[in-house]
Simulated assay, not measured.
Amino acid sequence: TARLATTDAAAVMKLGRTFPTVRRALERSGRLADARYVERATMSAERTGSLGEVDPSSVPYFSVAVLPSRIDTPGTPDAPDASASGRPGEVVVVGLGPAGPLWLTPEARGELAAAEDLVGYTTYLDRVPVRPGQRRHPSDNKVEAERAEFALDLARRGRRVAVVSSGDPGVFAMATAVLEAASEEPYRDVPVRVLPGMTAAHAAAARAGAPLGHDYAVVSLSDRLKPWEVIAERLRAAAAADLVLALYNPGSRSRVWQVGKARELLLEHRAPDTPVVLGRDIGGPEESVRIIRLADLDPADVDMRTILLIGSSQTRTARRGDGTEIVWTPRRYPEG
């Protein structure tokens, strides 16, 4: 299914009894409408047509499923608008994972290949391979609402749109913006799907060991969309409950004090030697993973490409035989 979704053109030969399986794969990959059926080509009993309209019981061994190339077909930048075909548009919000192609799911890869329009923050769009016939619509990272409405407008005109988002699109990302806009007129009837992606927290945790092995909370330190007082209260509550914390958006060029303040709040409830994982550019070319003490957390070491995992009272570290330091939180919590 993933290969059919991502390929430009394909042929599946000698269908026979495998026809229902091939048809299901084409349908799941979003390519059934493009697929053509050819039976006994060049013979007197030749039959051709749309594969989706073929009766499975009538398919002989000598038949072929064909996916024509998308190059120089409707959907190219110079092609007429898709609304002329009368087919419905759709918005699919796709999670790219933290960085690189290895953590992109087959489902997400297929939707990116099938999309006619790609919409997203410029940095994230640059991570998606350029494909002939696709339109790319980059924008700034502070115009999420406008980006969502733009994507929905394209879908209203019959376009198949992929909105790209780093990590998982439902975690401090574009899925919320799209669904919020899609809940209002004139977008209520536009189909919207959200595809999950690997989160930065899970990727960083895997690199360090298993610090999220027990209950944990996820908090964004950015006060751009909520007041710092709300963030501080949530940090206190999570720390008092002895939850491991995954802290997103810890700092930027314009936000330099939040990490220091968060450290002070957490030290009211956590020991100074509580393990902290600093994961930066996980999966990217500048990947860095460090394990430090909470008391040694320096705001100067943190930026927007960093995620912090703050251990609980039960989180442990150890040095393996090869010298590698690992961190984990036991699944069992002491009674009393």
Rank of each mutant, 00 (worst) to 15 (best):
D140I: 10
P227C: 12
P138H: 01
R263G: 07
P186F: 02
L265W: 03
H137V: 15
S44T: 13
S50F: 05
R280Q: 10
E149P: 06
M43F: 11
I307E: 04
R70T: 11
R23V: 01
S220A: 11
R319H: 10
T1Q: 12
D189S: 14
I71L: 15
G95D: 01
G279W: 07
E144N: 04
G97W: 05
V289P: 00
R207K: 12
P106I: 04
D301V: 08
Y37L: 09
H202N: 14
P196R: 03
R290S: 09
A10Y: 02
H202W: 10
A114P: 02
L179C: 10
G311T: 04
P275G: 11
A239L: 05
P191R: 08
V194N: 00
A114V: 00
D242W: 05
A65Q: 07
A181H: 04
H202V: 15
W328T: 07
A173L: 07
V178H: 02
S312Y: 08
G279M: 07
G311R: 12
M198I: 13
T329N: 02
D81S: 11
I282G: 03
R263L: 09
V12W: 04
I326Y: 02
M43E: 14
A262C: 09
H214K: 04
P68Y: 05
R24K: 10
A41T: 08
Q314M: 15
V119G: 04
A108Y: 01
R319D: 13
R136F: 05
A25Q: 11
A262Y: 01
A173Q: 03
R131M: 13
P285W: 00
R156D: 10
Y216Q: 11
M304N: 05
G100S: 11
A200T: 11
I326V: 15
P299H: 08
A82R: 15
L104E: 12
P272D: 03
G209W: 09
G133Y: 09
L51A: 08
A65W: 01
L247A: 05
A113S: 15
L125E: 12
T18A: 15
A45N: 12
V256T: 15
R136M: 05
P80M: 11
A2M: 12
Q134Y: 10
T48G: 06
G75N: 08
A99Y: 06
R207Y: 02
T1M: 14
S139D: 15
R319K: 12
A25S: 13
V178E: 02
V143H: 03
V327M: 08
T18C: 10
P56D: 06
